[in-house]
Every structure is written in C-alpha cells, then in structure tokens.
C-alpha cells in the first residue's frame, strides 16, 4: 500500500450527517471485480440525474472538485452496511483523506486498511478549511489544526502497511517452514 506522510489537495465539501455506505456506493453499482473501477458508482444516487447525466448541483461535478482528494463531511460518515466497496470507490475516485465529525466504525477500519486517512475534526474546525487543504500525518496537523489518531493506525498509514506486508515481515520464518516442509512431505510439492 502507498504510504501516507503528507498530502496537499483540493477539499470537496459534502457536509451532511449519516452518509451511509449505500449512499457512498449503491449496491447496484458494485458491478466490477476490482477494488478499483468503482469510481463511476461513487455517490451515484446524488451524482447523476436521469439518463445518468451528471447532476450540476452535486459538488464533485463542479470545477475544480472533480479533482478533489479530500472529502469533508458531517457526523457518522460511512455508517450502515460493511461493504468495503465504499472505501474502494472513494479511493478509486482519487480521495486520500476524509475529514468528518465522526465515522461508522467498520468504515473507519476499512479506510485505514486501504490507506485512506480518516480524521475527526469538529464542525467548527471543518468549516474553517479552505479549498486547498494541507495534511501532515507525522505532525498530526491539518492546516493549523491538530488532530488525534490512534498510534497503530498512524503507523499503518505511514508505513503503507497492510496485513500482507505485515506478514511478509516474517518471510524468513515462512521460507524456513516451507523448506523443511518440502523435505518432509515431498509429495505435496509436485
């Protein structure tokens, strides 16, 4: 996974409470076999009007927010169904950071697992953020605001670590195991 250290990008303001994962990506949009390729389905319910034309009132359809990499929202963002597709769709669109007042717990974990920084700020702090926002994860700063993040999550993001890379740190032991195993149970290794 791509490590997350510092990031500067355009922040799209979609301030509402209880944006659930079904709004982030409706189930009918989960058509692909990939964790990517889901960007067209992101916020499909709001983003398109009939005939799948782009809805001019929706923030991501307005310049320059089609290029946004930071999403600002309200309380309980990503609540509802556990679908990891919600995070995959955000990531695929180009989002690297979500800043909201609070999160659905599974969604938050899925974010970290997929290298997306999900930060909690107060509504007041969020309201002061401009069109371009600067994040420094080691310093735990968003522009001039300090934020909290569990240290384990911070490390995972900074190191760009996923379950696979964590396990691969034990690669020597795994190799050693398989070497012995092959000697002992040769028939298993055609």
């Amino acid at each position: 996974m791509r490590p997350f250290i510092k990031h500067t990008g355009i922040a799209a303001r979609f301030i509402r409470d209880n944006i659930d994962t079904d709004q982030i990506i409706p189930s009918r949009e989960m058509k692909t076999v990939s964790k990517s390729g889901l960007k067209d389905g992101l916020f499909a319910g709001q983003r398109y009007i009939s005939g799948r034309k782009s809805n001019p009132d929706f923030i991501l359809n307005q310049e320059p927010y089609g290029e946004a990499s930071i999403l600002l929202s309200g309380k309980n963002f990503g609540c509802g169904s556990s679908r990891e597709h919600a995070v995959w769709a955000l990531k695929d669109f180009g989002f690297r950071v979500v800043i909201a007042e609070s999160y659905g717990e599974i969604f938050y974990n899925n974010c970290i697992r997929n290298g997306i920084l999900a930060v909690q700020l107060s509504a007041d702090e969020i309201s002061t953020l401009g069109q371009t926002v600067k994040i420094d994860l080691p310093q735990q700063k968003i522009d001039n605001h300090y934020f909290d993040i569990p240290v384990a999550d911070k490390n995972i993001l900074i190191e760009g670590m996923d379950a696979i890379s964590a396990t691969l740190k034990q690669k020597d032991k795994i190799d050693e195991f398989f070497e012995k195993d092959e000697k002992k149970f040769g028939w298993k290794y055609p």
Binding site: V33, K35, Q170, I174, F177, F178, D181
Partner: peptide
Amino acid sequence: LIAIDRVFLHERTGSVALES
C-alpha cells in the same frame, strides 16, 4: 500463522482477490 497448501478461486469472489 498457518501454512496454506492450496488456494482455489472462483470468478465471483476470486476475481477481486487476483486483481488486487
């Protein structure tokens, strides 16, 4: 940590894993 000898996939869920 358990060693896995064989993995089987099918097109409905395995495809996501392979692509990833």
